[in-house]
Simulated scan of single mutants.
Amino acid sequence: MSELKQQITNEMKAAMRAKEKARLTTIRMILAELKRIEVDERIELDDTRVLAVLDKMSKQRRDSISQFEEAARMDLADAERQELEVIKTFLPQPLTEEEIAALVKSAADSSGAQSMQDMGKVMAILKPQVQGRADMGIISKLVKEQLSG
């Protein structure tokens, strides 16, 4: 079992003991999603893949929050925010804007990227480095600026 998945399982047990219902529900949802992927693909998830799943779940929560706020459903937006906070506890420390900019420049230099046609090369280098630590939409925007600038 991956280290991160073991940590999530341990947190579930701690939430059960502490009778933290909201946290427990979210952790169970995370574990259910991980289990679904393992069963569907007949694999054992490693930490990298678990991080990718957590990153996807946090992005879904952020999207839901903005949609619920637009629809003036603050009760549902608050519920999504609580889930997002629990999911964030399992993600690594987010990168600062300076760190992201440095990684983008480094990846562009090391790949020899000259134009927008080389964006895929740069993104391929960046993705494993920033997975779960930064929004890929922001990374993509910075790469475009770097390559067009």
Score class of each variant (00 low, 15 high):
residue 103 L to V: 02
residue 120 G to L: 07
residue 4 L to A: 02
residue 13 K to W: 04
residue 48 T to L: 12
residue 147 L to I: 00
residue 15 A to F: 05
residue 14 A to Y: 11
residue 8 I to S: 06
residue 106 S to E: 07
residue 124 A to R: 11
residue 15 A to S: 10
residue 42 R to M: 13
residue 15 A to C: 05
residue 76 L to V: 14
residue 59 K to V: 15
residue 79 A to R: 13
residue 119 M to P: 02
residue 109 D to Q: 12
residue 8 I to Q: 04
residue 91 L to A: 04
residue 51 L to R: 03
residue 50 V to P: 02
residue 75 D to N: 09
residue 124 A to F: 02
residue 61 R to G: 12
residue 45 L to K: 08
residue 72 A to V: 11
residue 110 S to I: 06
residue 29 M to T: 07
residue 56 K to S: 13
residue 149 G to V: 03
residue 93 Q to E: 15
residue 80 E to I: 10
residue 101 A to Y: 00
residue 50 V to I: 14
residue 138 I to R: 11
residue 61 R to P: 06
residue 141 K to V: 09
residue 60 Q to F: 12
residue 89 T to Q: 02
residue 13 K to Y: 12
residue 106 S to C: 00
residue 8 I to V: 15
residue 129 Q to R: 14
residue 27 I to A: 03
residue 143 V to P: 07
residue 48 T to N: 13
residue 64 S to V: 11
residue 33 E to T: 14
residue 132 G to Q: 01
residue 91 L to T: 01
residue 17 R to Q: 12
residue 130 V to P: 00
residue 133 R to K: 00
residue 91 L to F: 04
residue 41 E to L: 11
residue 134 A to G: 03
residue 122 V to T: 03
residue 7 Q to N: 14
residue 139 I to V: 15
residue 116 M to G: 00
residue 38 E to C: 04
residue 24 L to F: 08
residue 144 K to S: 02
residue 39 V to P: 03
residue 94 P to H: 03
residue 33 E to Q: 02
residue 86 V to K: 00
residue 34 L to S: 07
residue 5 K to G: 06
residue 52 A to H: 10
residue 136 M to V: 08
residue 45 L to Y: 09
residue 43 I to P: 07
residue 34 L to F: 04
residue 112 G to Q: 05
residue 37 I to L: 10
residue 149 G to T: 02
residue 102 A to M: 04
residue 3 E to C: 11
residue 77 A to M: 04
residue 82 Q to K: 13
residue 142 L to F: 09
residue 42 R to F: 13
residue 55 D to I: 08
residue 8 I to L: 09
